[in-house]
């Protein structure tokens, strides 16, 4: 690959993702930027990376930054991506914590947050449409999709339980057929 992103690209891109996610929807922003805007990954690779980052311990988004950073630039890439993702949010959170412990109140941002959160949910839903269009063809994938939504979202089974039940079925279904 000749057009590998530089360390600065990685840091700036993950900084952009982090700041855009004000109100939530960090996964949706990651796809928006990494797949749609930058074209650094295909949807399929992005989705499998996201799932792996969910299964492994650690914050999903930090894990994804490590994954993408390593993919392009090894360990320095991972450090650059995580640094970009966390630097400004950490400073912001520290400022908010300072105000909170000093004055025991958070500046009135409730209304703005409520609106931004509604839009963040919308971005997440549109990601379901955009990625689902590509992989939800046929009875089996649609059943898997609905099953894990019900178990994890509605019944609130732990992720590990959902995946131990459904992931082996999904992988067996997707195993490449011998020509």
């Amino acid at each position: 690959m000749s057009d590998k992103p530089s360390l600065t690209d990685l840091a700036l891109t993950f900084n952009h993702i982090a700041l855009a996610s004000f109100g939530g929807g960090l996964s949706a922003w990651s796809r928006e930027v990494l797949v749609a805007e930058k074209g650094w990954m295909e949807d399929e690779e992005f989705l499998s990376a996201v799932t792996m980052c969910r299964i492994l311990p650690g914050a999903n988004q930090v894990n994804l930054a490590v994954f993408v950073g390593v993919k392009f630039r090894g360990i320095p890439g991972a450090l650059a991506a995580v640094f970009g993702l966390t630097l400004v949010p950490v400073l912001l959170v520290l400022a908010m914590a300072y105000f909170y412990f000093q004055f025991h109140q958070i500046p009135a941002v409730q209304g703005i947050l409520k609106g931004a959160a509604a839009a963040a949910v919308a971005l997440t839903l549109s990601m379901v449409f955009k990625t689902g269009r590509k992989c939800l063809h046929g009875i089996v994938p649609i059943t898997l999709f609905l099953a894990i939504f019900v178990l994890n979202g509605l019944v609130r089974w732990p992720l590990l339980a959902c995946l131990s039940l459904l992931a082996p079925l999904a992988v067996a279904w997707a195993w490449p057929k011998k020509p």
């Binding site: 799932t51 992989c135 898997l144 939504f149 979202g153 999904a170």
Partner: peptide
């Protein structure tokens, strides 16, 4: 990659 894709979309929903 192929098998986990529908599961991930379900988890995002």
């Amino acid at each position: 990659e192929k098998g986990l894709a529908p599961l991930t979309v379900g988890l995002i929903l």
